[in-house]
Design a protein around this nucleic acid. Sequence first.
DNA 1: GTTGACCTTGACACCGTGTCAAGGCCGAAG
DNA 2: CTTCGGCCTTGACACGGTGTCAAGGTCAAC
Lengths: 272, 272
Amino acid sequence: MFTIGDFAAFGQVSARMLRHYDALGLLRPAVVDEATGYRFYSADQFSRLNRIVALKHLGFSLQQVGEIVDAKLSAEQLRGMLRLRHAQLEDELARGTARLTSVEARLRLIEREGHMPTDDVVLKRIAPIRVAELSAISPSYDGADIGPVLQPLFGQLFERLGAAGISPCGSPVAYYEDAGNETIRVHAAVPVDTGTAADVDLTELPELSQAATIVHQGDMMEAERSMQTLARWIEDNGYRSHGYAREVTLQFDPDNPANWVHEFQITVTRPS
Amino acid sequence: MFTIGDFAAFGQVSARMLRHYDALGLLRPAVVDEATGYRFYSADQFSRLNRIVALKHLGFSLQQVGEIVDAKLSAEQLRGMLRLRHAQLEDELARGTARLTSVEARLRLIEREGHMPTDDVVLKRIAPIRVAELSAISPSYDGADIGPVLQPLFGQLFERLGAAGISPCGSPVAYYEDAGNETIRVHAAVPVDTGTAADVDLTELPELSQAATIVHQGDMMEAERSMQTLARWIEDNGYRSHGYAREVTLQFDPDNPANWVHEFQITVTRPS
DNA sequence: GTTGACCTTGACACCGTGTCAAGGCCGAAG
DNA sequence: CTTCGGCCTTGACACGGTGTCAAGGTCAAC
């Protein structure tokens, strides 16, 4: 017979946890002194304790451990739990390595530049969106060429939507497609949830299951800076960009481009 | 200006968390309507939110995130935190892969045997222990040879300790050393915390920084079964045993060996 | 003016574990 | 026999990040 302290010390668990397991019915002491409430454990309870510890060590919750050790599960169910856990662990590991590369990227960045960036890239999923849009051709990818095409396009779009009594339900989005001959097709889109108008295109922007995004503040003439940050992040963190890019207008001030706020979104994948 | 819901949706955070960040002072809304308490966020707060999200994603706690984004840290301190985090992550990863191999080992075991073992191996650290001991030579490693040597040795040991007025402060431990010519030296030891007696050896059993242990119930004649389980576990889980083994007697019943309980301990290392 | 979607605060829950406090029990030393 | 130190008891609170619920206020659209 062991007192709770001895049992705990030998079993490499805290007495607190043994009481907890008792409360959960996971591991009851062999004997409880009726008068004093003292718990006493027998030597052969070490094997149960070890089962619990081992399972906990695999990352099962105490509840799952309880189900497993009390053999409420068939071998088949057990296999199922283990396989599930296996999948979860692989997932965690993948996330863990991604974290690690991110931290390493940060370290490199700080070594290189002596400080941390103030604009931060985050990875997100972009849900599909129904939009109304107009498009046009721009002679090049240069910001100086795109702006003059895009601005009036948005102007027209809002005008036509207003005329049709449709109001946007989200922030305007611009995106681009290669149109050959060094030119690109510029799309000005705005989310709508319903309604239709003859003179705008209704379409659905597809989901971006993994997009690297960065918030750019200020004039689009300086967008290059943010795009570079984004590109470097993608490379440093072991992703590969997939070309498809969007710009979401979060704040627009016709009088002062310095107040503009955009989010750039680029789909990325992790080559493994 | 965004309401909390919009800001949350776009930033891929829950509104609950935005309120939480507000409470922590981590991200205060740009405007709070005095009359209604409504929070409003400005578009340029997305960059702060993104910094927070990105840092959280590296696994920093909200408190650490706060310190980092509020630039309370010098670049040097920042480097320090990142390096620390880097080390932690590597640790976690190592533990994660160990877990994964353990789960895989379990799966193999269950596929092989159709059920889970009831005796479970756990890895522990064994602290160094001061012991009083006697030793003798046994002709072989065979349990049938060792028992008859070990038993009287323990008898003598306890007798001499009793005579010296010393009482043990832990469970008896047996361990073995190769003594050449196929023979082994058998040690019978028992932990003591103080006192000395001329006719026993006082020594310290060294720490075992990583030992695979299993609890064996019953007669030592069947110890082989548990030892095999242990050996297989060690192999399946990617460790290598290091020869050095101990047997701790957790329960001893002179009348009925079926009631005996021992723990076997073998030092292991993880070759990587 | 009604309705439905959104906002507010405050609270409780999860889980595994540490820690603290107030008090009881036990064994050894005086 | 008393006292003391070390163990035991129960009960509580805390951590952290997040979900969820309830009760009530606000806002915009119809």
